[in-house]
Write a protein that binds this DNA or RNA. Structure first.
Lengths: 162, 162
DNA sequence: GTCCCTATACTCGGATAGCAAGTGTCCGAGTATAGGCGG
DNA sequence: CCGCCTATACTCGGACACTTGCTATCCGAGTATAGGGAC
């Protein structure tokens, strides 16, 4: 099991966008430059965030991406699901219905107990991610980040928006 | 994100092995036949379970696999980790250290807040799986399974062990 | 009848191909901007 | 000097190759068994 690298990029980008004062928009190319990742591939994930209604795109010069809602109303789970998909990680293939002990569809009114347990674990995972909002992440950065790094980021942002 | 199909097979196999009275062992080929899956591929996962000390292998005729410990002492998490690996699903690539705001290694004493949140969610997932033992799954089957299916399984087992 | 020996056949174990999904990239459609022109 | 128009350049959006890891398979090494023979 592994989570797409795009999820990490997406969360970082949304966090950065939360720091951009509306109605300013930040282009995908600038976000890629800031994070040191391939611009074209990052664009792919930003499109997914746009489709999910987490960010909104502005076309033309001075365009780019900006948050579609306040950071306080965007959970980490929403971002993860937007990029990684909403399908459960565990997919029950119903192997209990195969082999010598199979008895026809009516013999299995409930989902497999193994699948239920795996899905319960995934629910716990989602619940934990649903607790945290992008605003929480921004506050965490404000507390943890190195002051010099923050200053450099602000300087960069000023130059980009010139 | 998706979980290897082998995880599903592995848990089913361990559950079946929990129903085999020791010291009897069940060969990989019979387990594959019972579940309707490719024998060679299932063998690969059973080897992983063996390496993890969850099942133990018995060589030669009348050999096969059997549980290395009582089902009550084997958690679902152990089985999942044995097959899927223990590495976290979310891997932080430290993209915060790249780009125009980077400040050198000493500026990042703590792990990235995003990674911490993702890992906390994974911990919740693991905790949920660690709660359930194979014995719990066996009890669940005893309650849920169709009586006819159980009888067919018992009949099959009797023929195989003849 | 009992014990030992040997040949057998069955088991696991790791090394080897094939395929799907994620990774990475590109170019085309659309649009707000900025400059120039006319009034 | 002000307003309108047009050409521009920048943006997003979806369609196209490539690589990693899961899927699937095979054959070789090791061993407990079962049968036969000797005692």
């Amino acid at each position: 099991m592994k989570i797409s690298e795009g999820v990490e990029w997406g969360i970082h980008c949304v966090t950065v966008l939360a720091l951009v004062p509306p109605p300013t928009a930040l282009p995908a190319g600038r976000l890629a430059e800031y994070h040191g990742v391939p611009p074209a591939y990052l664009a792919k994930h930003l499109q997914a965030l746009s489709r999910a209604g987490i960010v909104e795109s502005v076309a033309g010069p001075k365009g780019g991406y900006r948050l579609a809602r306040p950071a306080r109303e965007i959970t980490m789970l929403e971002v993860v699901v937007a990029i990684d998909g909403s399908e459960p990680a565990f997919r029950c293939t119903e192997i209990r219905r195969r082999g010598p002990s199979a008895v026809g569809p009516e013999g299995y009114p409930l989902p497999c107990g193994i699948a239920r347990a795996m899905w319960a674990a995934e629910d716990a995972w989602r619940a934990e991610l649903a607790k945290r909002t992008i605003a929480d992440l921004v506050m965490g950065i404000a507390v943890d980040a190195d002051p010099v790094a923050v200053e450099k980021a602000v300087t960069w942002f000023g130059e980009v928006m010139r």
